[in-house]
């Protein structure tokens, strides 16, 4: 059983491979205080990436939930879970609004 140690490692690699094969990255661009697209549909395990083109800091904030800080001219991301069908807004500019729907 010299190679027994390989088995768990292979299992981990396999699992990671499966996850990354189906998980996608969905990009939301922020330009002049607008999230676009404002509404996105994702699957659990997908990553939402916000690309901020403004010289201002923004957030993606879920009331009573999570918050992602998006620094000026930078990007930030979050892996979505099955529970993340949410409306979100920017805490600094609450007139900025977006929506995420997690498809089953």
């Amino acid at each position: 059983m010299r190679f027994a140690w390989l088995l768990p490692a292979a299992a981990v690699l396999f699992a990671a491979g499966v996850a990354s094969a189906s998980a996608e990255t969905i990009t939301v661009t922020i330009d002049k205080l607008v999230f676009s697209p404002a509404e996105i549909s994702v699957k659990a395990g997908d990553t939402v990436e916000w690309v901020n083109k403004d010289a201002l800091a923004h957030t993606a904030t879920v009331k009573g939930g999570w918050e992602v800080m998006i620094p000026p001219k930078k990007m930030a991301s979050r892996v979505m879970t099955a529970k993340d069908t949410v409306d979100y807004y920017c805490r600094f500019h609450p007139n900025m609004k977006g929506k995420i729907t997690v498809a089953p």
Partner: peptide, 17 residues
């Protein structure tokens, strides 16, 4: 100025919160 308006409107809402 149009971007400025969106920023000011956002700040107004933020201040109201």
């Amino acid at each position: 100025l149009e971007t400025g308006l969106k920023i000011f409107q956002g700040h107004e809402m933020h201040a109201e919160h």
